[in-house]
């Protein structure tokens, strides 16, 4: 990859103090995103995916603290003023949230909330605000967009609300779109449309996308690369095809195995034994060791580091699985 990366994240840490010790929600997360690349971010629920992306936009709220190096288009985001950050958000860097229903404010109409984007970024629209807002709904295929501008969020189904969120995220023509489970609430056909939409955006506007999802099938179809997180750390990063063909980290392997696959009905789904660790009392060695079928003594005493194995693959494991 010849161009400089669009986004470089290095050693990102996010902590939340709680009465019983700090929750280390992201602990030394590093990865890069190149222009017009779609990167999948997957991993255990609660492993810090959402928090990591919130930190990228400097939206971790106090009492949460975060540190690390975030370079976006050559600018060090940690050094920007709050005002400059605000211009970036919703403009060049956009985000779509995990819960469409709570991300929309229940007391304002959908139209008002879309209009807000244009009020704070007036350069984005050509016609009047309502037309622009209706166009946003149209882009994400909400039937009769003009009328729906007057609806309140609770009058929308989950999928419709999610499409509104996606539309709002795209309104700013971002060069990086962070999508936190954007299709979770959607049926497969609307989902396919949204994925198509993301592909088209990437082609037309060269928008890079960080896609957080639990649906591995979606990452298989859409993403160029996949970053796998576990307990606040990146444990594997790899081009999609290689990851699916030959996962190297035992956790990735566990994930792929527990996925139900269409047309392969099993009596019982595989599951990774045990529970993810408490982020306030992390094990000494490898964080996955208590649940790992390959764990040996070394795993319990020495923490593995993320190492490159060439060919664009990275893995954090003492005994990675061999390429098949």
């Amino acid at each position: 990859m010849r161009e400089p990366p669009l986004l470089e994240v290095e050693d990102l840490r996010v902590e939340f103090p709680t009465p019983k010790g700090s929750v280390r929600a992201a602990d030394g997360v590093s990865f890069r995103v190149w222009p017009s690349e779609i990167v999948g971010l997957v991993g255990e629920s609660g492993c810090g995916k959402s928090v990591t992306t919130l930190a990228l936009m400097r939206l971790v709220r106090p009492p949460g603290r975060f540190s690390g190096r975030i370079v976006f288009k050559g600018r060090n985001l940690m050094a920007l003023s709050e005002h400059e950050m605000r211009l970036l958000r919703g403009g060049e860097m956009a985000m779509i949230f995990q819960n469409p229903m709570t991300a929309l404010d229940p007391v304002f109409t959908v139209g008002d909330q879309i209009a807000e984007v244009f009020q704070s970024h007036p350069q984005l629209r050509t016609g009047d605000v309502r037309t622009a807002a209706a166009a946003v709904l149209e882009q994400v295929r909400i039937p009769n967009p003009r009328a729906q501008l007057n609806a309140y969020p609770h009058q929308f189904s989950g999928g419709m609300a999610q499409r509104v969120m996606i539309g709002m995220g795209l309104a700013g023509r971002p060069s990086l779109l962070i999508a936190d489970e954007p299709t979770t609430a959607l049926d497969v056909s609307v989902q396919a449309q949204i994925l198509d939409l993301l592909r088209a955006i990437r082609e037309k506007l060269h928008t890079a996308v960080i896609l957080i999802t639990h649906d591995l099938a979606i990452t298989a179809q859409l993403c160029d690369r996949i970053v796998v997180m576990y307990a606040g750390q990146v444990v594997e990063a790899s081009p999609t095809r290689e990851l699916f063909r030959a996962p190297r980290h035992p956790y990735t392997r566990g994930l792929l195995d527990s996925m139900p696959r269409l047309g392969h009905k099993r009596a019982r789904l595989e599951q990774i034994p045990g529970q993810p660790p408490d982020l306030r009392a992390l094990p000494v060695g490898c964080r996955f060791a208590p649940r790992c079928p390959r764990a040996e003594e070394r795993c319990r005493t020495e923490e593995p580091v993320l190492v490159s194995s060439g060919d664009g693959r990275y893995v954090r494991c003492h005994f990675p699985l061999e390429a098949r």
Binding site: R89, M95, L104
Partner: peptide
């Protein structure tokens, strides 16, 4: 009322 997310979104949209 809603949630911190609604507030976050508002920050995101620049208001």
């Amino acid at each position: 009322i809603a949630s911190s997310q609604a507030a976050l979104v508002r920050e995101l949209t620049g208001r």
